[in-house]
Computed example of a mutant assay.
Amino acid sequence: MAAVLNAPPGMPATLATVLAAPAAPAAPAITCRDIGVRFFTERRDVTAIGSLDLDVAQGEFLTLLGPSGCGKSTFLRVVADLLQPSRGRIEVLSSTPQAARKNRDIGFVFQDAALLPWRTALQNVELPLQVGGGASRKGRRSPRELLELVGLKDRLGAFPHEMSGGQRQRVSIARALASDPKILLMDEPFGALDEITRDRLNEEILRVWRETGVTILFVTHSIHEAAFLGQRVLMLAANPGRVREIVPVELPADRTLEMRETPEFVRLTSHLRRVLETC
C-alpha cells in the first residue's frame, strides 16, 4: 500500500503499485524432480541414475564431479534430449528437453572436438547454421565473431590437422555457440589436453561465460577444475548415480589461476576431495 500512497501526482495508483513491486525471480534454466535412468541389456539392467533432484539457475556455471559410473554424462544427455529418463520430471527453460533441442537452445561440447577434417575452422563453425534450418537460428554473433571470442581470429582458414588440440576444442566451443544457445553442456571438454593448455582454456571458458551469459553445465574428473570454474559443484556418488552433495563455491567471480594457491581454494578442494572419497 505504501507504493500507492507515494505515487507521483497524476500517476494511477495501480500503475504505481506495479512499478514498485519487486521483479519476479527468473525461472530455473533446468528443473529435475526424481529423475532416474536405467539401461537394459540381454544380461542385466543397470541403474545409471537412481534419483536426482536439482535446480540450475539461468546464467549459472555448474560443475559436475564424481567417480566413473555416477551418471554425469548420462545426466547431460537427458538435459540435451539425447536420452529419455526412466522416471521423474525434467523441465528445460520451462518446457521439455525436446522443445529446447528443437529450438536450438542447447549447445553441446564433447571431449572429442569432432570437427569435419575437410572444412576450415570458420566452415566448421558455420555448419550448424547450414543444416536443418539452422539459418533461421543464427545467433547474435557471427561465426567469425565467435572464433574471435574464443581467441582464434587468426585461424579462420586453418583445417583441423593444422590446429593444436586446444585450438580444435576452441572451434568446437564456437560451433556450439553458433545458434546462440541459452544452455551449454560440456562433457569433459578439456580432459584429453595437457595441463598448460587446460589451464589456459579454463580461463577462456570463464571469459566466454561472462561475455555470453549462457548457463553452463560442465562435467569433469578434476577437483581443481571443478572448484575453479563452478559457482556450485554438484557431487555425484555412483552405483547408482545420486547427489552426494552440492557445494557452493564462495570465490570471487573474476578468477585467475593464481587463486588456486590461496588458502580458501585449498580448503575448498580439500573438502571436495574428502566428499569424493565417499562417493
Rank of each mutant, 00 (worst) to 15 (best):
M186V: 01
L193Y: 08
L149E: 00
V131W: 08
A3Y: 13
P117T: 11
S51R: 14
L236F: 07
L234M: 06
Q130L: 11
V125R: 03
A26W: 08
R33V: 08
G88T: 12
D254Q: 04
E42L: 15
F218D: 01
R101D: 04
S270T: 15
L65K: 05
D194W: 06
E250C: 08
P9E: 04
L64F: 03
G69H: 09
K182W: 02
V247C: 05
A2N: 14
C70V: 07
M235N: 05
A21F: 09
K138M: 10
M11I: 11
T96Q: 05
A80W: 00
I196Q: 13
I196F: 12
I246M: 11
L82V: 13
R273N: 12
S51K: 14
L127M: 13
L229N: 03
F39W: 06
N103D: 11
V171S: 03
I90D: 01
A176L: 01
L19F: 10
V214C: 00
K182M: 03
L93H: 02
A100M: 03
P160M: 03
A24W: 09
M259N: 11
T278E: 14
P263V: 14
F40V: 13
T17C: 14
A99F: 07
N103V: 14
Q167I: 10
R141Y: 03
R33S: 07
R137E: 08
A48P: 04
A23E: 08
G66C: 11
A26I: 12
I246E: 09
A7C: 08
L236C: 04
N6W: 13
R44P: 15
V131F: 09
L116T: 09
L64D: 03
T41L: 04
L82H: 07
R274L: 05
L268T: 12
R244E: 07
S164K: 11
E264S: 12
I49N: 10
